[in-house]
Design a protein around this nucleic acid. Structure first.
Lengths: 271, 271
DNA sequence: GCAAGGCATGAATCTACAT
DNA sequence: GATGTAGATTCATGCCTTG
C-alpha cells in the first residue's frame, strides 16, 4: 500500500499534504501551497495546445476514424493565453524544485518551443533536450509531411548555478550497454495494448497516456530511492506508478475528477 | 560555371542582385532589398548563442583541448538582444518567402526554443521539427549530461493558410526504402575529414560547418530544379554547393569577409 | 500448443478546389 | 485568410481468431 503518512522531513512538514497521494485541484493553486525547494524531480506533461482543424476527422482507408486530441483541457483562446498559463505553472515548478533537483517537461512542436523559451526566460537552465523516438507512431496519412515520430523532453535545473543535481550517469550507461547514454537513445513504444487504460466500451480513458517505460527512464535518470517526485498534471497516474514501483515518494496533482478516480484505482492495483 | 546573369523572372527583376552569388553584407540589410514572395526555399543556420563558461577549455583524456564555438558572431549581450536579432531576420525571411515555399531553421537547445517561439509569434506555421541525429558527435566529457547527439530543424511555411508548398514526398519515400520518411530518419555524419574546410595550419575555417549530406536532403525535400534558394547566413557556402550541385538557383548572404572569400573559392572548385 | 493472418488503433496543428 | 465538399492517403504494433 502507498505510504500516506504526513510529511516528516524538513520542508514537507510545512504543508498539510500527504505523501503518495493524488491531489484533486487546479495545478497552479495547489503548487502554491508547497514550500520552496521541496521536490527532487518534477515531471510535467502539460497540454500541447494542438489546434486541430475544426469539424474534420481524419480517416483511415477502411473508413475508420482517427480519434484526435479534442479535450477541453487542451483548448486555449490563443498563444497569449497559453503562454500565461505556461508561465504560471513553470514559475511555481521552479520555486518548489530543490537546487539539487531537476525539471522535465515533455512536448511536441506545437508547444515545446514556446514552453522552452518561457523556461529560459525564468532562468531555468537546460541540461539536455532528449528525443523520445516513438515506436509505432501514427504515419502522416496525407503524405504532406514527415511522420511525427518523436516528442521532446527538456531536462533542466532550477538555475544556471545548480551544479550538483541528481544524475545517475553510471546506471544510464549500464542500461545503454556500457556506452554513454545519448539524448537520441530514447526509443520506447507508444502506450498501446494492455497498458492503455480503456473504459467498459474499449474507449481510451485519456487521449495522451504516456508509456510507463519512458517515465521509468526519467525516474531512474534523475532520482534515487526515497526521493520525492512531483507531477503537476498527473492524468491517469503513470508517473505515480513509475515512482511507486521504483521506491520513490510522490505527489500528483490533477484537475479532472475523472482522471483522479482512475489514477487512484490504478495506483492501488499496482501495489 | 555558376549562372551569374541578372534575374529575369518576375519577382527577381525588381532588385539588382544576381543569381548564384554570395552577397557580402549584413543579413538583415540585404534581406530588405529583396521583393516579397521571392524564394522557394530558405535555409537558415543562425548563431546559436552558446554562452560558454568564460576562460575554461574542456580537455580530452590525452590533454588536448576541445576548440569551442567562441566566435564574435555568436556573442550577444543577453536573451533580449538575441531575440531582437532573431525577430529581425525572421521577419524578413517570412516576407521574402513564397507562399508555396518553405523555411528551414536549424538549431540546438541553446537557441532553437527561442527561435521557434518567435517564429510562431510571427504566424509562421510549422510542418515538422526534424531531428538530425549526428553520427560521430562528441561525447559528454564530464559525465554530467547525456551526449548531445542531435540538432533540430524546424520546417515551416509562411503562414497557416499555405497548403500547396513544395514537398517531394515520393522522392523522400524512395530514399527511405519505400517507407514514408520520418522526422527521426535523418542520420548524417558530422562534417569531418576531407569535407571539413581547413586552413594551411589544419585549423578548421568555420566552427560550425554543416555536412553537405544534410543540406542536400533539405534541398531535395523542399525544392525542384530551377527553384531559387536563399541562405542568409551562408558561412563557408555549404548551401550554395548543395543547391548548385542539384540544379537549383541560389543566393547567399554572409557578413564575414573571410567566409565570403572561402565560400566563393569553394563554389568555383565544385563546378 | 504454435504459427499465420485478420483487425484495431495511435497527441494530427495532414488537401485541393470552388465560392 | 471563411466555409463547404469531394477525394486521396498510411505504418508499426499488439491482440485475437483461425487453422
Amino acid at each position: 500500500m502507498p505510504n500516506t503518512s504526513s510529511f516528516t522531513t524538513s520542508k514537507l512538514s510545512q504543508c498539510e499534504h500527504k505523501l503518495n497521494t493524488v491531489i484533486h485541484g487546479d495545478c497552479i493553486e495547489v503548487l502554491k501551497t508547497f514550500p520552496q525547494d521541496t521536490f527532487d524531480l518534477i515531471f510535467v506533461d502539460p497540454p500541447y495546445y494542438l489546434q486541430l482543424p475544426k469539424g474534420k476527422r481524419l480517416k483511415r482507408a477502411d473508413g475508420s476514424e482517427i480519434i484526435p486530441v479534442d479535450d477541453k483541457w487542451d483548448k486555449f483562446k490563443n498563444y497569449e493565453e497559453f503562454d500565461q498559463f505556461t508561465l504560471n505553472w513553470l514559475t511555481e515548478c521552479q520555486r518548489v524544485l530543490k537546487p539539487t533537483g531537476t525539471l522535465w517537461v515533455i512536448g511536441m512542436y506545437h508547444n515545446i518551443f514556446r514552453v522552452g523559451k518561457i523556461m529560459q526566460d525564468l532562468g531555468i537552465w537546460f541540461l539536455n533536450d532528449v528525443i523520445w523516438v516513438k515506436l509505432g507512431a501514427l504515419p502522416n496519412l496525407n503524405g504532406r509531411r514527415f511522420t511525427n515520430n518523436h516528442e521532446t523532453l527538456i531536462w533542466a535545473v532550477k538555475n544556471k548555478y545548480c551544479k550538483s543535481y541528481t544524475f545517475n550517469y553510471e546506471l544510464l550507461k549500464e542500461i545503454n550497454n556500457g556506452k554513454q547514454m545519448k539524448d537520441t537513445d530514447w526509443l520506447f513504444p507508444i502506450c498501446t495494448g494492455n497498458e492503455r487504460l480503456r473504459d467498459g466500451n474499449g474507449i481510451k480513458v485519456h487521449t495522451t497516456q504516456k508509456p510507463l517505460s519512458l517515465i521509468k527512464r526519467v525516474v531512474l535518470t534523475a532520482s534515487n530511492k526515497g526521493d520525492l517526485i512531483l507531477d503537476p498534471f498527473l492524468g491517469t497516474g503513470t508517473t505515480a506508478v513509475a515512482a511507486q514501483g521504483l521506491g520513490r515518494k510522490w505527489i500528483g496533482i490533477e484537475k479532472e475528477k475523472k482522471y483522479v478516480e482512475i489514477a487512484k484505482k490504478r495506483i492501488n492495483m499496482a501495489n
